[in-house]
Amino acid sequence: MKLTEQRGMATVYEPAEDSRLLATAVIDRIDGGQVLDVGVGSGYVAGRVAAETSADVVGCDINPDACRRARSEGIEVVRSNLTRPFEADSFDMVVFNPPYLPTPPEQEWDDPLEHALSGGEDGRRVIRPFMADLGRVLRPAGRAYLLVSSLTDIGAVGELAEGAGLDTEEIDDTSFPFERLVVLEITHENR
């Protein structure tokens, strides 16, 4: 994992294997429309989507440094906590590479980068509220793509989606000695 440094302190997550897997998995599945990149970070995924498809792309991030960085890459960005500020049925596609590293409370730290890396004790701290609101901003025929790790318990993530009235399907993955990264396609149930 790489981090952007500003004033001597790393503040923005740089693209790594997870970002590249997510971008590659979604590019061929986009056929225009409105796309939201949640947790836009450096703007890598949003930038590839904008450059390689006809979609209108907007990013959002809670980290002001990430917002500035993505804007400098030409991405329209809203500073926000997940999907809260967006209207219902706004997006044909939502992509998200969430913070998914399980982090015990005693190892949490307090700086902007924590929002990009720490998934809380079970790795799903940010995935829970994302899943709870995703169906609201996703158009009826829309699709979301979520990158998850085996460290986060992929089955538990699927249960969160199901509890929110959403279906999941694994569409791409890559394995490392310590984890498996998976891209889930998420749709409204009975689509």
Rank of each mutant, 00 (worst) to 15 (best):
D122S: 00
L146R: 01
Y100C: 00
E121K: 05
E179T: 02
S80N: 10
M131Y: 08
S149E: 07
D110L: 01
D153T: 02
D122V: 01
F91L: 13
G158I: 07
F178W: 12
G120M: 07
P85C: 13
I127R: 00
I127Q: 01
P105K: 05
L181A: 01
P129R: 06
A161D: 06
N190G: 12
L181P: 01
G135F: 12
E106N: 08
S118A: 15
A164S: 11
E76Y: 06
P177L: 12
F130S: 07
L160Q: 04
L113K: 13
E108Y: 12
F178H: 04
L134N: 04
A156F: 03
L117R: 11
G123K: 02
F86A: 04
H115E: 14
S149R: 00
A116G: 06
S118I: 11
G120S: 05
L134I: 10
L82V: 12
E108D: 12
V77C: 00
L166F: 07
D122E: 05
R128Y: 09
P140M: 04
P85R: 13
L151Y: 05
L166T: 03
G163T: 09
F91G: 13
M93A: 15
N97H: 09
T187W: 07
E76R: 12
L138H: 12
V137F: 08
E108F: 10
V148W: 00
M93N: 14
G120R: 01
S175Y: 02
E179P: 00
R180F: 01
I75F: 05
V182N: 02
A88F: 14
G135S: 08
V95H: 10
T174R: 06
R125F: 02
P112C: 05
V95D: 10
T168C: 12
L117G: 06
E106K: 11
G142E: 09
A132R: 09
L117A: 09
G158Q: 12
T187A: 05
D110H: 14
Y100M: 04
V95Q: 07
N81M: 07
V157L: 02
E162M: 11
E189I: 11
G119D: 03
A164R: 06
R125A: 11
P99E: 00
Q107S: 14
S90E: 13
M93K: 12
A164V: 11
P99Y: 00
P104D: 09
V183W: 06
D133R: 15
L146C: 07
E162A: 15
H115N: 15
R79P: 04
G158W: 08
V77E: 03
L147F: 05
V137P: 00
V126P: 01
A141C: 06
S150Q: 09
V148G: 01
T83C: 15
R84Y: 15
P129Y: 04
V157F: 01
A141W: 14
